[in-house]
C-alpha cells in the first residue's frame, strides 16, 4: 500500500519552493541599490523616533487562543482517521464519536461561559 516513491516529488517540491524564495532574495540583493543610512534603518513608526523596544508585553489572551487551538487541532487530528473509515464503521463508529464529541462540546461550552 504505502509507496515511498510517491513522496519523492514532494521532497523535491519543498526544495524547489525554498530555492525559489532564496533565489528571489539573492536576485534582490544583487540588483538592488544599497545605501544604508541610520535614519532609514531605524524601525518605522510613522516618522516618529522609536521610543521604546518593540518586544513589549502583549495580551495574555493571544496566548490562551494558542492553547485552545492546540486542543481543538488535536480533536481534528483524532477526527481525521475516523472520518476516512466512517462508512465502514457504521453505527458503532457513530456512537463512539458522539461520545467523544459530547466531551469536546462540554469543554467548548465551558470555554464559552468563561468568556474568552
Amino acid at each position: 500500500m504505502l509507496d515511498l516513491g510517491n513522496y519523492l516529488p514532494i521532497l523535491f517540491f519543498i526544495i524547489v519552493g525554498l530555492l525559489v524564495g532564496a533565489g528571489a532574495s539573492i536576485v534582490g540583493f544583487l540588483l538592488g541599490t544599497r545605501k544604508p543610512d541610520p535614519e532609514k534603518n531605524s524601525p518605522y513608526e510613522c516618522g516618529f523616533e522609536a521610543f521604546e523596544d518593540a518586544r513589549m508585553k502583549f495580551d495574555v489572551r493571544y496566548y490562551l487562543i494558542a492553547i485552545l487551538f492546540i486542543i481543538f487541532d488535536l480533536e481534528i487530528a483524532f477526527l481525521f482517521p475516523w472520518a476516512v473509515v466512517f462508512k465502514e464503521l457504521g453505527l458503532f463508529g457513530f456512537v463512539a464519536m458522539m461520545i467523544f464529541l459530547t466531551i469536546l462540546v462540554i469543554g467548548f461550552i465551558y470555554e464559552w461561559k468563561k468568556g474568552h
Binding site: G28, F29, L31, G32, T33, R34, N41, S42, P43, A54
Partner: peptide, 12 residues
Amino acid sequence: KLMFKEIIIPTN
C-alpha cells in the same frame, strides 16, 4: 521595479 529596489534591513 521590485527587483531593483533596495532591501532595507533595519538596524535592530
